[in-house]
Design a binder for these strands. Structure first.
Lengths: 218, 218
DNA sequence: ATTGTCATTCTTGTATACAAAAAGGCTTGA
DNA sequence: TCAAGCCTTTTTGTATACAAGAATGACAAT
């Protein structure tokens, strides 16, 4: 599928917002961006509209678009929704998953486990994402799957931070095991509760998330 | 808040797609639409991009945008997600709702009930929507609330049809009562199950939805 | 000194012009 | 008759030009 310039710019901008090049509340100047990417304002505007829809920026008519990083409260809310959505996936998967699908899940989990032993957080992050994506798929609801992927993508930069905490990887693995076991038993409620614990931000995780949230405040 | 032409066009187009002026699979010609709305292609393109994000049309690069009505399967999936999201709202609300919030819910329910007696489906539809919106709010999670409103809006034209079924309004009311009662008791699981039944498409509702789905197939 | 008004400048929103890619039709060959 | 290749036309994607609203700053009046 051919990509237009506007699409590339949207992706690049997303990265620039994630890595802090554009701070929260900052206005994104159309002509500046156009110069930066060596294009006209038209594709820049299209890209900004896409970012508006995904919630990274907010657009005020005849004022401009402004970066809008979620604050601590909104972030917790988003993680809560993610946890609940994944819980739904797990519950549905427990009664709908096929033998083949379950094997995919086991396989993804094995790959995670092999990475944990090497302590490679980046790779683990990717494999973990794959594990969750398979779970979404096994919900048997393609629309739900898409919604989960959307939110997962949105939370990506924050989730990544979480894994850096010492011992978090092995704990994450243990939680995976519990999830898989519950689904294997066809126990939807147990699976839902297990993944809710896995994803939601509580206790230690809460402090780390908040601490990492404002590195610019120093 | 000032509205731009592109926003109005997006809304109008949404309506035109809902009411069947543009059929499923049809290509939306930019210049045609520009003429229709007496504007240039620019705001039309912006509007189409917005519709793309909300899923009403699909955009194929360098080919154009095409209307994409959800088929029966996708529709059922969307209703399932709606049911599950509302179930989450209900469960969270059961433990988080304040006295004031509970009064709002009772009030909204009373308004529904008074409409049922007059058998005014349109007004009932609006009041029912309000009831659900209050429930979203009472989940205590603003992000969840927004997501629910988004999906509710997307399912609006299909939901409307459902209510036309004879006796559906009074059944809907009875279900509301059960939901409110469960939340009043602080019983999250019971509230979740009640609203799941209320929203999900099963049994009779399934047939009516499918039957109404393709009126152009005659 | 502060506030209100006016004018300038800047920025967004829209229209138009141009470029590039795809669709459609024609010819030509077997 | 059918298919392949080329050319024309159509349509999307991008650049530029123009219009209208908002921000800024100066100046005047209280």
């Amino acid at each position: 599928m051919e990509r237009r310039r506007a699409d590339c710019i949207a992706d690049d901008l997303e990265g620039l917002i994630f890595d802090g090049t554009f701070a929260d509340g900052e206005r994104l100047d159309e002509v500046q961006l156009a110069n930066r990417f060596s294009v006209s304002r038209t594709p820049v505007r299209e890209a900004l509209q896409r970012l508006t829809q995904s919630g990274l920026v907010v657009q005020i008519p005849r004022r401009g678009v402004f970066v809008r990083q979620p604050g601590p409260v909104e972030l917790l809310e988003m993680f809560e929704v993610m946890a609940e959505l994944e819980a739904v996936c797990a519950r549905l998967a427990a009664s709908r998953i096929s033998d083949e699908g379950f094997n995919d899940l086991l396989d993804a989990n094995r790959r995670c486990k092999s990475v944990v032993e090497v302590l490679d957080t980046d790779t683990y992050y990717r494999e973990n994402e794959r594990f969750h994506a398979i779970l979404y798929r096994q919900s048997g609801n393609a629309f739900l799957e898409q919604e989960c992927l959307r939110l997962q993508r949105r939370l990506q930069p924050f989730r990544r931070v979480q894994l850096r905490v010492r011992g978090r990887m092995s704990q994450s693995m243990a939680e995976h095991e519990a999830i898989v076991a519950a689904i294997g038993d066809g126990d939807g409620e147990r699976a839902a509760e297990a993944i809710r614990q896995h994803v939601s931000v509580q206790g230690e995780k809460f402090h780390h998330l908040i601490a990492r949230l404002k590195p610019a405040a120093e």
